[in-house]
Design a protein around this nucleic acid. Structure first.
Lengths: 178, 178
DNA sequence: CATTACTTTCAGATATTACTGAAAGTATGG
DNA sequence: CCATACTTTCAGTAATATCTGAAAGTAATG
């Protein structure tokens, strides 16, 4: 391939990558994570080499504070790892690229933030209304119980799925689909 | 039961219900739906009778506009139904109380808002990077493909599960858990 | 122990989202 | 049609979430 054609390919690659980063960031909002965090995740998922804070800042045109906070948040989730290069002081960051690992991490985090607190509330309200004899009281209690049972079930399922290996999950899924 | 004991029960019931509504509302924020919408949902799920806009406004101390908008949003989701009583002009609202139905509705909506748009982006980026010959280009393309395959798979699974009847879903789940 | 090279924090600024309340719209019944 | 009873909309305001940039913190090096 001549150098002009090669350049055209590199251009369309960087265009596609920019598109991915920008759109993934927009999606992040829907998913309840902030735009910058989602953009950094997209940036690092499609980076060949680990990147440092300054590179992230420049690529996305965000402040140091913002880049720093969201990189650390991604590390806290387990979606990004810190890499140190020997002889260098600064930290580099690299994203988990395995889709199944990404899925289990996100599933675990969502369960922690969405399912567990719901379960706590439902347990409390189910308990608090136990033994109330009026019709409204019985209705309330049984509604709390039904919700608690279902959310508890979802919690268990979430754990099971997140603990599965990719192959096993696909095997189970295949049965479900057929 | 004497009337004093009965009153004590009614108090603890309304306390438990208030707690549920308030906490469910706080949770809504985590789930990406606004507090009022989640509170109205909690209110109606634990109401014995359908409620009208004014009753909702008063129970939650919110404005007419807010109550109206969120009631209609809940109706749009399918989590709440409009009920008309004969001889009355105003609309009453009643929540779906069946937990499996609630789950399938929420799953469908989340798929629509979270999975489908992701799939569209990934398809586009996968296409846009097809045939790029540089190593970075190939890496990008295969990352997009892996993500697209996984998200596509999640989309299918979501549809399948949402289409199941409660009993069937539980049967499948039982196998998964054991 | 001073300098350099980074990382971390956070008060204030900005952007986004949600809510209010009043006005406009609509349907029903006399 | 007019009055009444309700529903819907929306401009302005309030609340919340996010981002910036600079200052403070920390650790390695000579």
């Amino acid at each position: 391939m001549n150098s002009r054609a090669h350049q055209a390919q590199q251009d369309s690659l960087s265009h596609a990558r920019d598109e991915f980063i920008s759109q993934w960031g927009a999606l992040g909002t829907q998913w309840g994570i902030n735009r910058t965090m989602a953009q950094i995740h997209a940036l690092l998922m499609t980076a060949v080499e680990p990147m440092c804070t300054d590179e992230v800042m420049e690529s996305l045109a965000v402040s140091r504070g913002n880049a720093h906070t969201n990189l650390k948040e991604l590390v806290a989730w387990g979606l990004v790892r810190v890499v140190v290069r020997k002889g260098e002081r600064r930290e580099y960051f690299e994203a988990e690229k395995d889709v199944w690992k990404i899925f289990t991490i996100v599933a675990r985090e969502r369960k922690r933030r969405e399912i567990d607190p719901a379960l706590a509330i439902l347990n409390k309200c189910e308990e608090a209304s136990r033994g109330i004899t009026s019709p409204e009281g019985k209705a309330f209690h049984s509604q709390m119980r039904a919700l608690r049972e279902f959310v508890g079930f979802a919690s268990t399922m979430s754990d099971k799925v997140a603990a599965m290996k990719h192959g096993m999950a696909m095997q189970v899924a295949a049965k479900l689909i057929k």
